[in-house]
Amino acid sequence: MSIRGKHDPLFITIYSNCACTFRFSLQMYSSGNPTNIANPVKDANVQVDIKTASGRLTLYQTTLCERLQWDKLNADINLDPRGVLDTYNENDIQLICCQADASILWLVPNVVQTRFIQSLDWEMDMDIIFTWVLTRDRPKGKEVVKYERTIDPPYLPKKSDVQKVLNGSMNSFRIYNLYPRYFRVTGSGDIRPLEQEEISVSADLVINRVDNEWWSFHDVNSSNVTGCGRLTGPMAIIISEETPPQGIIGDTLSKFSIWGLYITFVLAVGRFIRLQCSDLRMRIPYENLPSCDRLIALCEDIYAARAEGELGVEEVLYWTLVKIYRSPHMLLEYTKTE
């Protein structure tokens, strides 16, 4: 048995398919830099809602939040006494400081407030929902991440206190364990509390009644936390993990992680090559014979006999062709080069 030469048709087909696949893979990889780059938080806002079976009201909301880079903070400020952030890159850590006063006015009509106060008597459940919304540049399709937490019942204020604040007989109520102080935003676009640090934030929600009405958020432990200066509202320490840059590879890694890259390139491209190369021995009688002139002539004779209505001749020629293909020896004889 001779080794296939470089001019063999089957060899040329396989080589061309593999070369095209290889060039395609190189082009895909060249469109993205596998080195991850910083992906800081570009925008942040906070919201506190109260909910009963009768509906949901937004008490406090602010979009006025500053983002301070960790390496730009005053060296005298120690926001990590336990050292849990030492394993992270300083370029990925930010201090988010928000204003205590809401950026929206409390414009709920008195009749709605009255009905909501009554619903607190009728309904057994009252929920308070705290939400962080963070915006980054990447990954595409997951630029905005949300951390939403429903406060556990033991940490909720008394319903009577909430009623008194809404009807004007009190100015504030306290909520405990609103959210963790430390967050980690993953490269794939998920926001999670930092497992090693379980410091939770408690706050007083205060309603201000002057010419207009608005809510304020006052961190109970703000005196123990430095770094935000005059901003005494919601504060969090965010670790935003690095992500791949823009490009096909970067987008694939960002959206689907390394498993998405594996499925896209290894399984898909591998399956394509396998389909091109599978069952080659079954294709040899049709694609890799020395000379098929006699077999082609036999096929043309079958077509001519059918066209002339010589069905008996057609059947004899047809079974002759089948017999040739069923016998490797006869097939080799009929396809020899003269």
Rank of each mutant, 00 (worst) to 15 (best):
D49H: 08
I50A: 03
S54T: 02
S54Q: 04
L57N: 03
T58M: 07
T58Y: 01
L59S: 04
L59W: 07
L59I: 06
T62W: 08
T63S: 12
E66D: 14
E66L: 08
L73N: 01
L73I: 15
N74Y: 04
A75R: 13
D76T: 12
I77H: 05
N78L: 07
L79G: 02
R82Y: 12
V84R: 04
L85Q: 06
L85K: 04
T87K: 15
Y88Q: 08
N89A: 07
E90I: 03
I93S: 02
Q94T: 13
L95A: 03
I96Q: 01
C98W: 13
S103R: 10
S103L: 05
I104V: 15
W106Q: 08
L107E: 15
N110D: 15
V111N: 09
V112R: 04
Q113D: 02
Q113C: 10
F116A: 02
F116V: 07
I117K: 03
S119C: 05
W122L: 14
W122Q: 12
W122C: 02
D125P: 00
M126D: 08
M126L: 15
M126R: 10
M126S: 09
D127M: 11
F130K: 02
T131I: 08
V133C: 05
L134H: 07
L134Q: 03
R136N: 10
R138E: 03
R138D: 00
R138I: 06
G141V: 07
V145A: 10
V145P: 01
K146V: 14
Y147I: 01
E148V: 09
R149C: 07
T150N: 13
T150S: 10
I151A: 09
I151Q: 05
P153T: 12
P153V: 12
P157L: 10
D161F: 06
K164Q: 15
K164A: 15
V165Y: 10
L166K: 01
L166C: 07
N167D: 15
G168P: 07
S172F: 12
F173A: 08
R174C: 08
I175N: 00
Y176W: 02
Y176L: 12
N177C: 05
N177E: 14
Y179D: 02
P180F: 11
Y182F: 15
Y182G: 00
Y182N: 06
